[in-house]
Nucleic acid binder design. Structure first.
Lengths: 177, 177
DNA sequence: CTCCTTCCATACGGCACCGTATGTTGGCGA
DNA sequence: TCGCCAACATACGGTGCCGTATGGAAGGAG
């Protein structure tokens, strides 16, 4: 079977979601794909290059897309709620995110995470401005909201089943002036 | 130089803070201590046993102690603020915490993290009850507060310098009814 | 059909870490 | 002072992963 660069990043993305950064290893990936690492090393110079392509693909596919989805809601409150509800759905989406957060100091992952985070914070700030906050307060609320999201996502891992019932209360707390 | 079991967990704790879970490896640890792994394997049957002793030591030393410190404050608001300010100080304390959170699914770490989290959530719930919330709402607030803490701690890693100025606002938002 | 490039398999050496087996030492009890 | 045992050091084999070297197959261009 012939494989492309995108096939490998797709496989790596799945591995990243299921097994974390450690699972993005050339030989296990190849075995999983029914190939050998000869193929991987043909498309990528080394493991870091594969990882870089993988996380950058994730960045392209799962950052703007979420914002677009959220923007389909009408009120800022609904947008905020949809934002939380969406990204906290514990599919591949959130798993990849957590894998990246868990390895935030990795030199390949760090710049991607920085860009994505800043993009999100910018969007959240705009949302809170639409809710009537001045710029300074909106920025703080955005930071609080994003931190809350990160924490919730983390708790899905350690103590699942405790997060969902708190969603409405969280949005309420965040939007109150 | 003679070494005890506690010497090794001390060294492992430092390694955990500075290099994450990966750094808690027998041979590097021994080299770092100016010894060989013969010593480590004399005190522990294997790497997981060392890790277990290490995280359980952290659990003993850094869970109750924080609560005790926080309890020295007078008002629940001050307690909450001190709690955030303390645990978010990015010394060894927070680094170990993040290393554990980043490896929450590790079979040695998971149970410790679960116990610590439940203990903290319980304490936070009590705090919010003291603030006048009924039990159900206090539980939700506790969850929100703890998630916020986790997220803030994570952001110290990815985008430091953005967290501190938001502390007061966060406490304010959390305690408002 | 042939040639050439792309794609991949095989085989190899290397590194880092785990765990075991066994030798060595230094201090303490009798 | 002798012997013993805890506390190591040393040496070894094993595993999983990285990266390289090289040969072979498959498919389009001519």
């Amino acid at each position: 079977m012939r494989r492309t660069r995108e096939d490998w990043t797709e496989i790596a993305l799945r591995a990243l979601a299921e097994g974390g950064l450690q699972a993005v290893a050339v030989e296990p990936l190849a075995a999983r794909a029914g190939a050998t690492k000869g193929s991987v090393y043909h498309h990528f110079p080394n493991r870091d290059a594969l990882l870089k392509a993988t996380v950058e693909r994730w960045e392209r596919e799962h950052t703007e897309r979420v914002i677009e989805l959220v923007e389909s809601e009408k009120t800022p409150q609904d947008k905020l709620r949809t934002l939380f509800a969406t990204v906290l759905g514990r599919q591949r989406n959130g798993s990849v995110e957590m894998a990246l957060q868990a390895n935030a100091e990795n030199e390949v992952i760090a710049p991607v995470l920085k860009r994505v985070t800043e993009r999100r914070l910018g969007y959240l700030t705009k949302l809170f401005e639409q809710l009537g906050f001045d710029h300074e307060h909106a920025k703080k609320r955005a930071l609080i909201a994003f931190s809350l999201y990160l924490g919730q996502a983390q708790m899905y891992v350690t103590l699942p089943g405790l997060v969902e019932p708190v969603l409405d209360e969280a949005v309420q707390v965040l939007t109150r002036r």
